[in-house]
């Protein structure tokens, strides 16, 4: 039976009836149309879209466009705000850093360099005591010394104390040996004047049997650091 059916199929193929050909042509046309429609709908072409649909599309695009424009505005505002705040905080950070540097020189937690003087006090008779040295330091401060160190080891800051200790002087807890070498950073002429004036440091040292020399220097470098103690009782206000 199947062989017979197959043979009949082949005979049909060789001698098709007109109606079968018409059916085949119609189905071929349908397949053709489906194929070109499917492959044609791949590309985004609006030529097949109706007018009112196009209007709708355009409207929705307009709305989307408007919404995105608003979003762009918002985001631009945010970005500008962030940028300016970044700049502000950068400026503030720079200022704070500068201030911290200045304060660290004042507090003696950083080394310092600049014009200044070097005073060398020879005291063979051991007649220069702590108050006398403190007087000398005060005179230098009055003359605008910004950073002072003694013998390159003792940095003189606000909390530094001077103490007589068994024929030696202690500055801020550090024992300093004779001869005393005071380095001060500031206007070198003013500082030299503050040492040399009549009745000043040099005269007083001479009176006590010692000798003092002053050298103005273009560059004085102080590397000695003060011992920083965090305040135990004082708290910053505000």
């Amino acid at each position: 039976m199947p062989e017979h059916g197959a043979r009949r199929g082949w005979r049909d193929l060789l001698r098709p009836k007109a109606s079968q050909v018409v059916v085949a042509v119609l189905i071929g046309a349908l397949a053709f149309a489906i194929t070109i429609q499917v492959s044609g709908s791949d590309d985004d072409d609006y030529s097949g879209v109706r007018g009112d649909e196009l209007v709708e599309l355009l409207k929705s695009l307009d709305v989307a466009n408007e919404r995105l424009g608003t979003q762009i505005d918002d985001l631009t505002t945010t970005r500008n705000g962030l940028l300016s705040s970044t700049q502000r905080s950068e400026r503030a950070e720079k200022q704070a850093r500068k201030r911290a540097d200045e304060l660290s020189i004042l507090a003696g937690t950083a080394g310092a360099t600049g014009t200044g003087i070097e005073v060398v006090i020879n005291d063979p008779d051991k007649q220069i005591d702590a108050p006398a040295l403190l007087d000398a330091i005060e005179e230098l401060r009055d003359a605008g010394a910004e950073a002072i160190a003694i013998n390159g080891v003792a940095r003189v800051v606000a909390q530094t104390y001077f103490l007589d200790d068994d024929g030696q002087i202690r500055v801020g807890g550090r024992e300093i040996k004779r001869p005393y070498r005071i380095e001060a950073i500031g206007d070198s002429q003013d500082l030299a004047e503050a040492v040399r004036f009549r009745g000043g440091l040099i005269d007083r040292v001479d009176n006590r049997g010692g000798s003092a020399t002053v050298t103005e220097k273009d560059k004085v470098t102080i590397t000695a650091l003060a011992d920083v103690k965090s305040p135990e009782y004082a708290r910053p206000t505000s």
């Binding site: 049909d12 193929l13 059916v23 085949a24 071929g28 046309a29 397949a31 194929t35 070109i36 044609g40």
Partner: peptide, 23 residues
Amino acid sequence: MIPVIGLAVGIIAGLVLRPAVPA
């Protein structure tokens, strides 16, 4: 049988020719 051939011919023609659908 012939309709199947028509189907195949239609698909192949569509794939090969790729005509643009008239507006």
